Deep mutational scan, measured.
Amino acid sequence: YFCHCCSVEIVPRLPDYICPRCESGFIEEL
């Protein structure tokens, strides 16, 4: 997954599918 807020590849935090770095939901499956 790619976080558009951090502009990095991340492993989303489940079950909410949010970025573990910034806690944004603005992520996209690569």
Rank of each mutant, 00 (worst) to 15 (best):
F26P: 15
H4S: 10
F2A: 00
C19P: 00
C19G: 00
P12L: 02
H4R: 13
C22A: 00
P15R: 05
I10H: 05
I18V: 13
E9M: 05
I10F: 10
C6S: 03
I18F: 12
G25T: 05
P15V: 03
Y17M: 15
R21S: 10
C5N: 15
Y17E: 15
V8M: 11
E28I: 07
I18D: 12
F2E: 06
I10G: 06
L30A: 12
E9F: 04
L14Q: 14
D16R: 08
S7N: 13
V8W: 11
G25P: 10
Y17I: 11
P20E: 08
P12R: 04
V11K: 11
C3N: 01
E29K: 15
I27R: 06
P12Y: 01
E23C: 10
S7R: 06
V11R: 09
F2K: 07
C5D: 15
P12F: 02
I27D: 04
F2R: 08
Y17A: 14
V8L: 13
F26R: 15
V8P: 03
E29M: 04
I27L: 11
F2H: 12
H4V: 04
C5I: 13
S24A: 08
E29P: 14
I10D: 05
R21A: 08
S7Y: 07
I27V: 08
C19D: 00
D16S: 08
P20H: 02
P15S: 05
C3P: 01
R13M: 11
I27E: 06
V11N: 13
P12A: 10
E28P: 06
H4W: 06
P20S: 07
H4P: 13
L30M: 08
C19I: 00
E29N: 08
R21V: 03
D16C: 05
S7Q: 05
E23P: 00
I18C: 05
C5R: 13
F26V: 14
P12M: 04
E9C: 03
C22W: 01
C19Q: 01
R13T: 13
Y17T: 14
R13K: 13
C6H: 02
S7I: 05
I18M: 11
S24V: 12
P15I: 15
I10K: 11
S24P: 02
C22E: 00
P15A: 10
L14V: 08
C22T: 00
Y1V: 09
L14P: 07
E29W: 03
I18R: 13
C19Y: 00
C19K: 01
C19N: 03
V8I: 12
P12I: 06
E9N: 13
F2W: 14
C22V: 00
P20V: 02
R13A: 09
R21H: 05
L14W: 11
Y1E: 04
E29A: 12
C3E: 01
P20K: 02
V11Y: 10
I18Q: 11
P12G: 04
H4M: 08
L14A: 04
S24M: 04
V8E: 13
V8T: 09
S7H: 00
R21M: 04
F26E: 15
C22L: 00
V11C: 14
E23H: 14
I10M: 12
P12Q: 03
V8H: 13
Y17N: 03
P20L: 03
R13G: 06
P15L: 10
E23T: 12
C19H: 00
L30R: 15
R13S: 11
C6F: 01
F2P: 01
R13W: 07
I18E: 09
I10Q: 04
C3K: 02
V11T: 14
S24W: 06
P20M: 02
R21Y: 13
P12K: 06
E9Y: 07
C22S: 01
S24N: 03
L30G: 15
S24K: 12
L14K: 12
C3I: 00
P15D: 11
C5S: 11
C3T: 02
C6W: 00
C19A: 02
C22D: 02
Y1L: 10
Y1K: 11
C22K: 00
L30Y: 14
E23S: 13
C6N: 03
C6Q: 05
E28M: 05
S7D: 11
E9W: 09
E9R: 05
F26A: 15
Y17G: 14
E29L: 10
Y17W: 13
I18L: 13
P20G: 07
S24C: 07
I18T: 10
E28Y: 09
V11I: 09
P15Q: 07
V8Q: 12
C22P: 00
G25D: 15
H4K: 14
S7M: 09
P12W: 00
E28V: 14
S7A: 10
G25M: 13
C5P: 03
E28S: 12
C19T: 00
F2I: 12
F2C: 04
F2L: 09
C6G: 05
P15T: 07
Y1S: 05
S7V: 09
L14G: 12
C3L: 01
P20D: 11
E9D: 12
C6A: 04
L14Y: 12
C5Y: 08
V11D: 14
Y1N: 14
S24L: 06
R13H: 11
C6R: 04
C19R: 00
C3A: 03
Y1I: 10
P20A: 05
Y1F: 11
R13L: 10
C6T: 02
D16N: 11
L14I: 02
Y17C: 09
R21D: 07
C3W: 00
L14E: 14
P12T: 03
F26Q: 15
F2N: 13
F2M: 08
P12E: 10
L30T: 12
P12C: 02
V11L: 09
P20I: 01
V11G: 10
R21I: 05
C3F: 00
